[in-house]
Design a protein around this nucleic acid. Structure first.
Length: 618
DNA sequence: TCAAATGGCGCC
DNA sequence: AAAGGGCGCCATTTGA
């Protein structure tokens, strides 16, 4: 990588992607001003130094906080020191005017994107960049093996001033008198933070976070990507995923019969339930696992669960109807008419996305199962007139990530192939792709038994470095240690009860039961940490990818991110822009590879497809 | 009677 | 092919 100043933008190779504006979103969340370009061999730092587009006279940071009925804002320099007066923004118009007047590329600073950004979006204000104190604090505290508080900025401020930390359970004092004893309302908890200057709180939290991440480029990249992801998440939640309600309704009616009144099974389910009762000869409620299990047990089958893959092998007349009932009942309850009513408005599905909501760094979603849209419902995810989806996923991301973080030469060689599993199969599994895939998944998830457990020795022989990486991660977990993703997200330490159980098993007088229990919980935590390094690093890559895509498509009129699920995304785009957006998506993936795995020969290919229906994307 | 736990299953 | 990682959601069951 060269260090020429003009080469520092970290953009896709060859500069063939039209940008028309400086790339400035992704990194440099902390203190960078134009002209102060820092260079070394770490391309993440090149990228950090390459932040441009900040107006010479504009603020580096603009802190924004709700205040009373309106907002307050204040410019800060790159050290987090206020450089201007507090601006009071009493109403929406003032906020809009203020936002429009800020320099292009200003980095906003606020407490939590999930609470601050939606009202801005509702007022028609979009921002390019932000430093999200709460998400950053979660990452930093995790690294320091501490827990995050609900309002991070206030907590950081309190600690620095030796004040009680708001909402900190440890600091809460038990009430002297039991509530209700005097028939009085329990007094509202005092909230000293209500009197603090919200902009001071933000500035100080920023300074603390800047200090604590000083010099750690990977961590700063993660913080930048996490903050940018939060913007994308809020925008996606507001925009919604195009979903044609009438199409989904028709599918439901075809499969379940007419929509029933509340509390009643749809016709098809009622019919199947009646058939099941008939097959057993007495009433059996297929919605009740207890009922169903005892029914099969009475019929002579020794089963401990009624999971479909267990049921399907039983030789009993009720089996086909039970299986069909389970499938359709799932559709009815999880993605039926109620779901449509509750989560789809104006032919758009609105979930709330929570970046960093999963300990590994993956997103979580609240509402409507936003990250578990079943294949069938994807048939109703249709682009609007004149539009298409650019759908892209990172093929076999996790094994590629394992190759990158471990540096295993053989696995890296395999990752050069478009279909990693086929290459893997040819490399050691006699061409058997299914076996190769099962083995690799088992290695990353910690399988011990069955087919995938049996195949582990093959992997260990072929890819000793990669296997040692995951096995070491598992070992650390079993010992109660923590592990990190490639950019530095840290796994939580095990709970006190975990430690107690493991300790109990190690004592000289431990019984067999205690020993076995200790072994099992230790192994389970080892499986978690084993997977954490892979899943977490994949999430790091994906966050950087998403951030890049968001930054790039901002220049494409009408293009909007409408879905992101761990390693895949959907951009809803005017048909004429599909090709250019597809190219941007690929470019962002290349950029993510370079930033997250600098110098690694690993390949993390994405293959965008242009579709009108999400179900056709795969 | 209500909240928490469980069983099951969709997604990655 | 088999039951290993991460989630959210629903209906039912359990337990205080």
């Amino acid at each position: 990588m060269t260090c020429a100043p003009s080469d520092g933008d970290g953009g896709p190779a060859g500069g063939k992607l039209p940008t028309g504006r400086p790339r400035l979103l992704l990194v440099g969340n902390f203190g960078n001003v134009p002209g102060r370009v820092i260079r070394d061999r770490d391309p993440r730092r090149d990228q950090t130094g390459a932040v441009g587009g900040i107006g010479e006279d504009g603020p580096v940071l603009c802190a924004l906080a709700p205040s009373g009925a309106g907002w307050v804002a204040r410019a800060l320099d790159d050290a987090g020191t206020p450089t201007g007066p507090v601006t009071v923004l009493p109403d929406r118009a003032a906020l809009q005017e203020f936002a429009a007047s800020t320099a292009p590329g200003v980095r906003w600073l606020w407490d939590a994107t999930t609470s601050v950004y939606p009202p801005l979006l509702a007022a028609g204000i979009r921002v390019d960049r932000v430093h999200d104190v709460t998400l950053t604090e979660r990452i930093l505290l995790g690294r320091e093996s501490r827990h995050a508080e609900p309002s991070a900025a206030a907590a950081v401020y309190a600690r620095r001033h030796g004040l009680p930390v708001p909402d900190d359970p440890v600091a809460e004092v038990a009430p002297a008198v039991e509530p209700g004893l005097f028939m009085a309302e329990p007094s509202a908890p005092s909230r000293p933070e209500a009197d603090w200057d919200p902009l001071d709180v933000l500035a100080e939290a920023f300074r603390s976070q800047a200090e604590r991440s000083a010099g750690e480029n990977a961590l700063r990249l993660l913080i930048a990507a996490e903050s940018a992801s939060a913007l994308a998440a809020a925008e996606m939640g507001a925009a919604g995923l195009p979903l044609r309600a009438s199409v989904h309704d028709r599918q439901l009616t075809d499969l379940l019969g007419a929509r029933p009144p509340a509390g009643v099974r749809p016709p098809k389910l009622a019919q199947l339930a009646a058939g099941i009762t008939e097959a057993f000869g007495y009433p059996v409620n297929p919605d009740s696992a207890v009922d169903l299990r005892s029914a099969f047990q009475r019929a002579g089958f020794d089963i401990s669960t009624t999971r479909s893959w267990v049921i399907k092998d039983l030789d009993h007349p009720a089996v086909p109807e039970v299986l069909e009932y389970k499938e359709l009942s799932r559709l009815f309850t999880a993605n039926g008419w109620n779901w449509l009513d509750e989560w789809v408005r104006g032919d758009r599905f609105h979930a709330e996305y929570l970046p960093g909501g999963v300990v590994t760094g993956r997103w979580a979603a609240r509402g409507g199962g936003g990250l578990q849209i079943p294949k069938l419902a994807r048939r109703a995810v249709l682009a609007e007139p004149g539009h298409v989806f650019v759908a892209a996923d990172a093929a076999q991301l996790e094994p590629r990530v394992l190759a990158a973080i471990s540096g295993d030469p053989a696995l890296l060689a395999v990752s050069a192939d478009e279909d990693l599993y086929t290459a893997l199969a040819d490399d050691g599994f006699g061409g058997d792709r299914a076996h190769a895939k099962v083995a690799m998944l088992g290695a990353m998830y910690g399988a011990t038994t069955g087919e995938s457990g049996r195949l582990l020795p093959v992997l260990r022989r072929r890819y000793p470095v990669a296997m040692a990486t995951v096995e070491q991660a598992a070992h650390r977990g079993e010992q109660g240690g923590v592990v990190r993703s490639v950019l530095g997200r840290t796994s939580p330490p095990p709970s006190a009860s975990w430690r107690a159980t493991v300790l109990a098993g190690s004592l000289p007088d431990a019984g067999r039961g205690e020993q076995a229990r200790a072994r099992e919980v230790a192994r389970a935590w080892g499986r978690f940490t084993r997977n954490f390094v892979v899943q977490g690093s994949a999430a790091d890559w994906a966050a950087v990818w998403l951030s890049g895509v968001r930054r790039e498509i901002a220049a494409v009129p009408g293009a909007e991110l409408v879905f992101f699920q761990h390693d895949e995304l959907l951009v809803h785009v005017p048909a004429g822009s599909a090709d250019v957006v597809a190219e941007l998506v690929v470019g962002a993936a290349d950029e993510a590879k370079r930033l997250v795995f600098p110098g690694s020969p690993v390949s993390t290919p994405v293959r965008p497809v242009v579709v009108e229906c999400y179900a056709d994307a795969k």
